Computed example of a mutant assay.
Amino acid sequence: MAARILLLAALVISITCSDIAFAFDPSPLQDFCVADLQKPVLVNGYACKDPKLVKAEDFYFSGLNREGNTSNPFGSIATRITVTQVPGFNTLGISIARADFAPGGVNPPHFHPRATEILTVLKGTLEAGFVTSNPENRLFTKVLRPGDLFVAPKGMIHFQKNIGRGKAVALASLGSQNPGVVTVPNTVFGSHPRISTDILAKAFQVDQFRIQQIQKNF
């Protein structure tokens, strides 16, 4: 009897592990899968280019040394390098961005739905932080100087502000070839079509006139 129970347990474990193995493959199955940006087929990413046609340029990008234009209401700009710019990122789960800040510039609260972010400061002084999910809504924040880094976990709303006297530059390393970005004020107040003012007024506990005034900025 005990032997039968043991055999049944082993069979259940075997089936369960088999299902898990077939359900998710966490690692690439070849050296690389350079994105073929011309093919219409998308399989949670881009189809692979014929390896015989792959070139060194598929893994290369030049231009992260160029300063971004921060002449905008936020005083910051992010130059994002994803699989679209570097086809070799495809299936590797990585991308990068350069963030430039004017004095007092802010990268407003936002989140990446598909990636954790590691922010490394190269120049200037930044205040960086993120907020945990409901119900705690706990704020973690830190002042960063050249050589410092700060991690914003996947899906957490985070921000940066230049609190130094001069310009600031940082590199953001992201754990997805296409991390996506949802900028909270743009999304909430600048959607197309607009979210109803009565919904936003109740959500932010203000009158509809104030919501309309904010929406005009977006």
Rank of each mutant, 00 (worst) to 15 (best):
S191M: 06
A23R: 11
H110Q: 08
Q38P: 04
Q160E: 09
A10M: 10
L144T: 07
M1I: 03
F101W: 07
S95N: 04
V151G: 08
A128K: 04
R138D: 11
I81T: 05
T84A: 15
K49S: 00
K142L: 09
E117V: 00
N186E: 11
L6C: 10
S95L: 02
S18F: 13
A21G: 02
D58V: 00
N162A: 05
P108L: 00
K142W: 15
L92V: 08
E67Y: 05
L122W: 01
A97I: 09
V184M: 12
N186F: 02
P73G: 00
E136R: 02
E67R: 13
A56H: 14
F209K: 15
S18C: 11
D25C: 02
V181N: 14
D207S: 12
A99R: 14
N162F: 06
A47H: 11
P179L: 05
Y46R: 07
A56Q: 05
G45R: 07
R145Q: 07
V54K: 01
C33Y: 08
F101C: 04
R210L: 04
V206G: 12
I157Q: 15
A47I: 04
F89I: 01
S18M: 14
S176W: 12
T70D: 13
L8R: 01
P179T: 07
V54R: 03
R210E: 09
V143H: 14
A102L: 04
N44G: 02
